[in-house]
Amino acid sequence: MQSFTEAFNLAATLLLEGNKELLEIVFLSLKISTLSTVIGCIIGFPLGAIIVIYRFPGRRFTILMINTLMGLPPVVVGLVVYLLLSNAGPMGTFKLLYTQIAMIIAQTILITPIVAALSRQVVESLYEEYEELFTSLLITKASAIFALLWDARYSLLTIGLAGFGRAISEVGAVMIVGGNIAHVTRVMTTAIASETAKGDLALALALGMILISITFLVNGCAMLLRGSKYFSNK
């Protein structure tokens, strides 16, 4: 198809000439998704481990909720965050709608259940291995959580990347709460959506190709990091 060669050439041209608007959009995408992923991991990793280690009332319900929320459609998250942040909503006074913070909030809500559910699985299988040792060594539950999370770090890195992948490729939520405002809240996915709406399929496809390349690079770096001496040793 002609569109593909056209899109490929366009993507190459835009990147090579260092198109300022494009770079701005790419940078913002990376910023928003990285921050959401980091926050999602700070909440999700310990949450996943706590569910494994502690027996508390409502634990099974929490697992069920997390697994359910894992499949949350981005549009629904966007809508809920919109209703919360809207001036007519409960958090309207903070004036966060159509800001980057709103986008970070939406993406964090989207990612955290995924990170928590996946890290629960990882930590659980590791804990099966360690449980007797920890009991034997009288390791407290709190230290056990740190030890498990640290020992599961390669798997957790992969989980973090899965979260990042979800965040950076998501369009429904950031479109609603960010508003796709040029130079302020326009990220790669919302730009792709609006370029498609303008019928500029080649430009949309070119942006898509750049998005894939970024995800490819990020995953590649993570792979190298995992293979590096520091990570395999420590």
């Binding site: 291995e129 360690y130 040792l133 030890a147 020992d151």
Partner: peptide, 9 residues
């Protein structure tokens, strides 16, 4: 049962 760390750790 060994931790996924270095021998010393």
């Amino acid at each position: 049962v060994l931790l996924k760390r270095s021998v010393g750790d």
